[in-house]
Simulated assay, not measured.
Amino acid sequence: MSRLTITLSEPRYRALKEAAAQRNKTIGQLIDESLDFYGIKSREQALDLVRRARARSVLSEEQALTLAQEEVRAVRHAS
């Protein structure tokens, strides 16, 4: 397990500490879960996800690319 040092404002640190306590988790666990939620993955995890998706897909490569582009546009438009 790697260690990381980050700098947060005091109010942000207190809020993070309170959120972790309310959930009965450590700050590290809360951050790790948040990274999972936002889809932050290692290269290995991302490649494995792509391999599994391709194995189950009934779409052609062109259809899959079009769908992916539409999803990216939708996410960007929503933010």
Rank of each mutant, 00 (worst) to 15 (best):
A68H: 07
G39W: 05
I27M: 08
A15F: 10
V75I: 12
R52M: 15
S57H: 11
R56H: 15
D32V: 00
A64G: 08
R54V: 12
G28F: 00
E62K: 06
V58S: 15
Q69V: 09
I27Q: 10
S57K: 14
S60I: 02
R76C: 10
T26G: 00
P11C: 06
R14G: 01
D48P: 06
R43I: 09
A64T: 06
E10Q: 14
P11W: 06
R12Y: 11
K17S: 09
A46D: 05
E44N: 13
I31N: 00
K25C: 01
Q69E: 15
D36E: 15
L35G: 00
E71N: 13
E61L: 03
Q29A: 04
V50L: 13
D36V: 00
R52Q: 15
R23L: 11
E71H: 10
R43H: 12
I6S: 10
T7R: 13
R43Q: 13
I6H: 02
A55P: 04
L16F: 02
I27H: 00
A64H: 02
F37T: 05
L4I: 09
S34P: 00
A46G: 07
I6M: 05
Y38W: 08
G28V: 00
S79R: 12
V72E: 08
R76D: 03
L16T: 02
V50G: 04
E61C: 00
R14F: 08
M1Y: 09
H77Q: 13
L59C: 10
E71C: 11
K41S: 07
I6F: 07
T66W: 07
L4N: 03
I40L: 03
L47T: 09
I31A: 01
L49G: 13
R23F: 03
R51I: 12
L65V: 06
F37P: 01
Q69D: 14
R43E: 12
E70W: 02
K41V: 08
E62P: 01
R23W: 04
R73L: 05
F37S: 07
G28I: 03
E44R: 12
V72L: 11
V72N: 08
E62N: 02
L49D: 14
Q45C: 03
A74D: 15
A78G: 05
R76G: 01
V72D: 06
N24F: 02
K25E: 04
A19H: 07
R14Y: 08
Q22E: 14
E18I: 11
D36M: 04
A20I: 05
E61D: 13
E33M: 03
S79L: 11
L67Q: 15
T66Y: 07
K25R: 10
E61F: 01
R73C: 08
G39E: 09
K25Y: 00
A15C: 09
S79P: 00
P11I: 05
R76A: 06
A53E: 15
L8P: 01
